[in-house]
């Protein structure tokens, strides 16, 4: 009887330990930073586990996704540059084919309700289908990816560990990729530390913050630094690209030349800027807002009158924008390519 009780106790304790570890790990996978709104992503349909995140990470960095096994997500979304394609106005994909847009930086995706510069994608899970199928990006097909992963040495075991027995499916691949991308949270910049009372701005940064709140924050809403909406910010249309933005999706003339308001977090590293990467540095961006706005019927209400900034104010605003750099995000070892097969 005593022995039985002992076994039961050990069993109960080990169960408890297992749950604690699982709970602990899952908590670490996704933490909503203090003061942030609730995420948009429905985690009840795709529960995060360590194994699923690691599987998604492996797929993210694997060129097996592309038609000729040469291009991975990393090609246009490098972790060291806030997961965008640094130094290229228009991102290029398989066989150096040039696309029509600058790849967006990837971070805080759990709070985003639509994806792509024009919001053509309605859910994070479905996002990866677009680059996988695009002729200029990966030029493959989700069915081909399923076939290649199913015939791979490691993937069938990794999928079984996450999803149990059964075939690799499109759904499982997409949910794994989402799991990894959901963990890409940037909420530990100097701006955040100031907000949490851990440090304070320099006078210059504080001046910049006041200018930001006065002139930029209705579209680049704190704390995510985007309102997740589509706006026409007065860029002259590029006749070669003829990109009409949100209009292409809705066919509504009111959406003419509107593009998703991007987050400003990690802006120091996510150059070049705008949907077509036309500005190489922040000073070009600020000059656009002060003297470059082109009037049109769909121009954002907030930009109907030019933003006036002295050159000193531009320097101060830039100093503030640099406080949005989050080194713990940019150099997070859990976000970079896995070195060896993950188990």
């Amino acid at each position: 009887m005593n022995r039985l009780r002992k076994i039961a106790t050990i069993f109960a304790l080990s169960l408890l330990a297992m749950f604690t570890v699982a709970f602990h790990n899952d908590r670490l996978l996704f933490i909503v930073p203090d003061g942030w709104p609730a995420p948009v992503y429905d985690f009840s349909k795709n529960e995060l586990t360590q194994e699923k995140v690691e599987l998604g990470r492996k797929i993210f960095y694997d060129p097996i996704l592309s038609g000729n096994n040469t291009v991975s997500c990393e090609n246009c979304h490098s972790p060291y540059t806030a997961f965008t394609h640094v130094d290229h106005a228009l991102s290029h994909g398989i066989e150096d084919r040039i696309g029509t847009r600058n790849s967006p930086a990837l971070m805080n995706l759990a709070w985003q309700s639509s994806f792509m510069r024009d919001g053509a994608i309605n859910h994070l899970d479905m996002q990866a289908l677009a680059p996988i199928s695009s002729h200029t990006e990966m030029d493959s097909d989700i069915s081909d990816v399923v076939k290649k992963l199913s015939a791979h040495d490691e993937y069938p075991k990794l999928f079984a560990a996450v999803y149990g027995r059964g075939e690799i499916t499109g759904e499982k691949i997409l949910k794994s990729l989402s799991a990894f991308m959901l963990t890409l949270i940037s909420g530990s910049s100097r701006y955040d530390s100031v907000g949490r009372g851990l440090t304070s701005y320099t006078t210059q940064e504080n001046n910049g913050y006041q200018i930001f709140k006065r002139s930029c924050s209705t579209c680049h809403v704190e704390p995510l630094f985007t309102n997740d909406q589509f706006m026409n910010n007065g860029l002259p249309a590029d006749s070669a690209l003829a990109d009409l933005g949100r209009y292409n999706v809705t066919k509504n003339p009111a959406d003419f030349l509107k593009f998703k308001v991007p987050t400003l977090r990690n802006i120091e590293f996510s150059f070049p800027y705008m949907h077509d990467g036309r500005f190489r540095n922040l000073s070009q961006v600020l000059n656009h807002y002060t003297t470059g706005i082109v009037q049109s019927i769909s121009l954002a209400e907030q930009l109907q009158y030019p933003i006036r900034l002295t050159s000193n104010e531009k320097v101060d605003l830039t100093a503030f924008l640099l406080t949005l750099t989050d080194k713990s995000f940019l150099f997070n070892p859990r976000f970079v390519a896995p070195r060896r097969p993950t188990r």
Partner: peptide, 15 residues
């Protein structure tokens, strides 16, 4: 349509 990735007949591999 807005519910994310689905299984079975709704899997995107079904074309």
């Amino acid at each position: 349509n807005v519910g994310g990735a689905m299984a079975g007949d709704l899997d995107p591999t079904r074309g």
